[in-house]
Design a protein around this nucleic acid. Structure first.
Length: 307
DNA sequence: AATTTAGGCAACCGCCTTCCT
DNA sequence: CAGGAAGGCGGTTGCCTAAAT
């Protein structure tokens, strides 16, 4: 209601800025002892000069043991985010429930970066230097070329999305609908966290209906289609996912035993990681360049290309 | 080698929802 | 039921690093 954040606390005595390792230790010890709740009592107990919100954020985004920190989004994860964003909008917390080890902040940052990139490409395409882009991104991967040369390009997707989709469809053509991660056998129910707030991000989530590009934001829908690709906007209606493939690499949830069983084939945090399905992480080598051919046929959307 | 640009990420802000008294 | 407190969430900003020029 009328409360202003921090109004009830003396903001002057609150520490801000980057967290020190010692602070992290204190926070971890606190969660060990009391569970991930009552964040504001961390300050009231005199443990840390941080706001409860700040403590919670730090825990959720960095200290929680089941996070994929320092690991780029895999192509699979990218695709999931793209599809769910189209479906739910900017409901990052909800989307994150479908991605083991990813936080809402991760998803948000990923999306933001992607949007910037798209905006920049569109702007470049609308300007006089699209040839410049060709020069800058000459290394179209062979697989990417196949996608576009076969006329399967969907102008609503970035290069890596199209490539990802293409690659994926060849790997497992039949996939079930996306489902959120559930505690299942891998994660304990919220109760085991000490009966904290049941407003938890893991709560029951409606299984999303099939994704449809018709639900894309209007700004994207305004983009003109490339010749001979109009059908694709609806072809993607049937893109399905196997929920098993999403949940199968949910790590054993062991709050304080260093958490993650390392995914097979890659140590965490090192980059270049591979996941169970063999999909490589979205390494620059594969997805680094956009197919400017895709953009050359496009006119800038009436309203969004100027900035 | 210096500068610019873009990507990635951590953390803060403020609004909203839910819980508690 | 009303109001305050706490937590959740999305938007935004700023810093750091790597790549490009």
């Amino acid at each position: 209601m009328g409360r202003k954040d921090g109004a009830s606390t003396s903001a002057a005595s609150l520490r801000k800025g980057p967290w020190m390792a010692e602070e992290d230790e204190v926070l971890i010890e606190y969660v060990k002892k009391y569970g991930p709740r009552d964040w504001s009592s961390i300050r009231s107990k005199g443990l840390l000069p941080r706001s409860g919100k700040s403590c919670r954020l730090r825990w959720v985004n960095k200290l929680k043991p089941d996070l994929k920190t320092g690991c780029k989004f895999s192509a699979e994860e990218e695709r999931i985010v793209i599809e769910l964003q189209a479906q739910f909008g900017n409901k990052w917390a909800r989307i994150a429930t479908y991605l083991p080890g990813r936080t809402d902040n991760d998803v948000k940052n990923f999306w933001s970066t992607r949007q910037k990139r798209l905006a920049r490409l569109l702007q470049a395409q609308s300007g006089p230097n699209s040839e410049d882009l060709h020069r800058k991104c000459p290394s179209l991967h062979h697989e990417q070329r196949i996608v576009f040369e076969q006329g399967n390009a969907n102008p609503l997707m970035t290069c890596e999305e199209q490539y990802s989709s293409h690659f994926e469809s060849r790997q497992s053509p039949a996939r079930g609908p996306l489902e959120p991660l559930s505690y299942g056998s891998a994660l304990p129910p919220p109760d085991s966290w000490g009966g904290g707030s049941e407003r938890n991000p893991w709560g029951p989530i409606d299984p999303p209906p099939h994704f449809s590009y018709l639900q894309l934001p209007q700004a994207l829908l305004d983009l003109p289609l490339l010749p001979e690709t109009h059908h694709l906007a609806t072809d993607f209606d049937g893109v399905d996912f196997d929920p098993e493939s999403l949940a199968h690499d949910v790590p054993e949830f062991d709050l304080f035993s260093d958490g993650l069983a390392a995914p097979p084939g890659g140590g965490g945090g090192g980059g270049g990681q591979e996941f169970d399905d063999g999909m490589p992480a979205a390494a620059d080598g594969l997805f680094g360049d956009f197919p400017v051919e895709m953009l050359d046929g496009l006119d800038p959307p009436a309203s969004s290309s100027q900035s």
